[in-house]
Design a protein around this nucleic acid. Sequence first.
DNA 1: TTGTAAGCGTTATCAC
DNA 2: GTGATAACGCTTACAA
Lengths: 335, 335
Amino acid sequence: MDIKIVDVAKIAKVSPTTVSRVLNNNPIVKPETRDAVLKVIEELRYVPHAAAKNLRQQKTMTIGVIVSDIKVSYNTDIVKGIQTKAYAQKYKVVICDTQNDLDIEREYLRLLMDRSVDGVILVASLLPEQEIVDLAERGLAVGLIGRRIDHDNVLNVHTDNVKAAKDAVEHLISQGHRDIVFLSGYANAKDSYDRLEGYIKALGAHSIPFRPELVENGNFNETGGYEAFKRLSGKGLAFTAVFSANDEMALGVYEYCNQNGISLPGELAIIGVDNDRVSKYLTPSLSTIDQPKYDMGLLVADKLIRCMNGEMGIPRLSVLESHLVIRQSSVMYSR
Amino acid sequence: MDIKIVDVAKIAKVSPTTVSRVLNNNPIVKPETRDAVLKVIEELRYVPHAAAKNLRQQKTMTIGVIVSDIKVSYNTDIVKGIQTKAYAQKYKVVICDTQNDLDIEREYLRLLMDRSVDGVILVASLLPEQEIVDLAERGLAVGLIGRRIDHDNVLNVHTDNVKAAKDAVEHLISQGHRDIVFLSGYANAKDSYDRLEGYIKALGAHSIPFRPELVENGNFNETGGYEAFKRLSGKGLAFTAVFSANDEMALGVYEYCNQNGISLPGELAIIGVDNDRVSKYLTPSLSTIDQPKYDMGLLVADKLIRCMNGEMGIPRLSVLESHLVIRQSSVMYSR
DNA sequence: TTGTAAGCGTTATCAC
DNA sequence: GTGATAACGCTTACAA
């Protein structure tokens, strides 16, 4: 049988209330009482029962994190940031990996609606905006990474994807490229859409006409990137560079080039987004846009915790800087 | 104010008991009653309160996973397996990342002793055996990956590290190497120790004397591998191949070779362990021992859940097969 | 087949 | 400074 607060109280010859006060560092208890109680707690190795406490206090000191795929280093870095901040504030973190499946995402959310978490962070969520608003209306604190919703209970953290994409494409242009392919991600993803916008803006800024036929969808993953690039190559179009909306898809392009004897960056320059863990190990190493993933995680978690603690006036929106990482894949004569 | 079971009961004109029965799929309730209740639940979007339920049932349907570093793909793959199994059984997963810090690991464990989880899985735990046994004695179900403890409440899943290491080293020997460096991990890690044993066995099986000066410690990480190999190179010893106790450390060796113009695998063959995500993207691609990480995750989670549900006769120990993945880094004239 | 009432282990409120 | 008591929202004997 587990030890409970009354057991401690009896042995320490005080009331459960007093034990509770000691546990919660209530300064009102007399130091001697306090010490006596602590000693008993120590001896019995008593640990308060979370469920009882949660029930009484109507909070759980737990954050739920819903993430598309924990294996993708972009997500993992964010989770690590969240985890670090949460831990520092004595919060626990429940991780839910949706495998990029909207139904699984919904299912997890349903699971978490049982008030086993005080707040939720959605990373690269596929959920329709209305459903996220619903969560917030239900009183759950919601943190969002990679998209933006303006609502009282929704805290947003993201980077300026338009600018990031523009930087990447302008870098390619500065290397002399004018016929630049854009490999896009999910059609409905805000990130993907913004990167397309940046791509178009960069072209515009240099008076290069936008050619829709140079845009292909690769669904943000390696196979998708491979297939997209293959389709593109089959079209017989002329191009000398690729801007891939993330590094994963760039891996697919590397694979295709490898198989077909296309030399990188000699015959084809390429740049990605995310600064995935593998990118710097590739040959040639992949130029990319580094997102401050870890910091984004820290920041959402920080905001969310403040919000859950009833703090007012937390900025609903934070936009962090991402920056260009130039490696070998986008630079001529780099070796 | 949140909706609770009595609210549903009142509107559905039944007792809370009946609502509870419906929620828990008790077949005793009359179909019509059931449907009526379900309709109200739906309308009110009622979700049972986890803490209340947990308190009453003395369980939480949650598994705690303590992991050394969620960014290491070895760990992530395991976590993914755990997560998948847990989800399929309606369990939640709390992830705790210790950053390879024993004190943080202890702290997390203390956090989880509040009965907010029904069981714990330790991946690459640094905890002294006695402390793990303590957990088990306290009634917590414990799953262990990467080490082995024989105790009633402890479920072990690991691979045969001795054999894996032996396979790797014999592969190098088969390629003509006789002077083979061993890069070890943490001195106190079972995995590391077993791999050393396999290394020695392989040498013995081919009548190659074991030379302790060819063993260096790299602490299982990239920088450690770099430094260890640097120290070794400074010793002026002759060797033609490296067996690295994991892929991470091999990355450090690649880096060193890159900087010092040592060609792989021409001048130096190398093989690692883990089949890290980056390994196949390296140039030359890294030969390695693939561990069934995902399956190990699935399996511990499965065992743990059975154990938590009071199932008897679950095997305390499962040893999965790992296998050699030969790529370019260990094979002469491979390109 | 359904309902009543007790109890899970805390903490908040109100007395003392 | 300390203690008695009710309440958090659910499930489970037991009764009907």
